[in-house]
Amino acid sequence: MGNRLSGKVAIVTGGSRGIGRAIAERLAEEDAAVVIGDLHDDLSAEFGKAKRPTFMSLDVTKEVSVREFVDYVLQKFGRVDALVNNAGKVVHKTIDEQTADDWDRLMAVNLRGPFLMAKYVAPEMRRSGLGTIVNIGSVEGFVVNPWHTAYAATKAGVHGLTLGLAVDLGPDGIRCNTVCPGWIDTDLNRTYLELHADRSLVERELSELHPLGRIGSPKEIANAVLWLVSDESSFVSGEMIAVDGARSKKISLPATLDEEYRAKLTKAC
């Protein structure tokens, strides 16, 4: 535990589980007062080694809910220094199977949500002349998995939102960046792997897709977020930072040509 965020107030949306929870824990470990906004309170009595964050119900798709949430944070803490827009949703469907409701729901959670949060938090950051916003995007804003048309569109939109906020809010001393996770070992992803008959084979093949030879952990995303909300990144704004073990940087090859590379990778790991 450290004190890099001592005296600062940080909001984490979707922070009750998965990557969001890891982010909330990491920021709290550095002495930030963390407020989690989520639809469900999944926090246990024990919250890592840090003090338990404050929880308030939040639906990022509803403007009234966002406004009430920000008002609550200001009444309780008097300021907002960092906003982490983590709440997100994914749908696995082909374009033929996707409905307009599927599309609208993903847009509402993944893109409208970060917009609304930034809209209501930015004026408070502007008053202090400092602040940082971190959006959780995805490598699928650059490259896309099958059946993720709507999801990829929302994450590309988040990347564009980040650029706009960085430019518009920069003169007010507010920075905005995006962390783009690759395949991360979350409960959701583990559940997906359990659907396959040979889970160990899928896990091995997933690891081999990454030049580092493994998938990532939620804490590795949280560490990147911590750096971006800390003063250590004070001249970094408008960036999309991939945390994916270089997976999105490796050009695919036919299996016969890739065999030697994969063999070396397996041996190294």
Rank of each mutant, 00 (worst) to 15 (best):
G15L: 05
A224W: 01
A45V: 12
V139E: 01
P114M: 00
M1A: 14
A152G: 14
K51I: 07
D71F: 06
A45M: 10
Y120W: 09
K51F: 09
W103V: 09
S207W: 09
R52D: 05
S200F: 10
W147K: 06
T13N: 02
S6K: 10
N223M: 13
D187P: 07
K49A: 11
A10F: 05
E205W: 15
D41E: 14
V158R: 00
K267Y: 08
M240V: 06
G164A: 10
G157T: 07
M107R: 06
N110E: 08
C176H: 02
D104V: 15
L27T: 03
A150C: 05
E259K: 09
F142V: 12
N189K: 07
A150F: 02
V34M: 08
G20Q: 04
P218L: 03
E220F: 00
D172N: 13
V243S: 03
V60F: 08
A246Q: 15
T191D: 15
R262M: 15
H92K: 07
G164F: 00
G216E: 05
Y261K: 12
G20E: 04
R262G: 07
A22L: 06
M125I: 07
G15R: 02
E203C: 15
K249Q: 11
H159F: 06
L163C: 15
K51Q: 14
L116R: 03
V35F: 10
G157F: 00
A122W: 03
R190E: 13
E259M: 14
V225H: 01
G2I: 11
S233F: 07
R67Y: 15
A24P: 00
H148M: 13
D198R: 10
N135S: 04
G20A: 05
L163W: 01
E140A: 03
G131L: 04
I184L: 08
R126H: 15
E30H: 03
D38Y: 02
L43R: 14
K219M: 11
L165V: 14
Q98A: 14
I11L: 11
Q75T: 11
S207T: 13
H92E: 12
K49N: 13
V66K: 03
R214L: 09
E97M: 10
G15H: 02
A156T: 12
E194Y: 05
K155L: 11
G141Q: 06
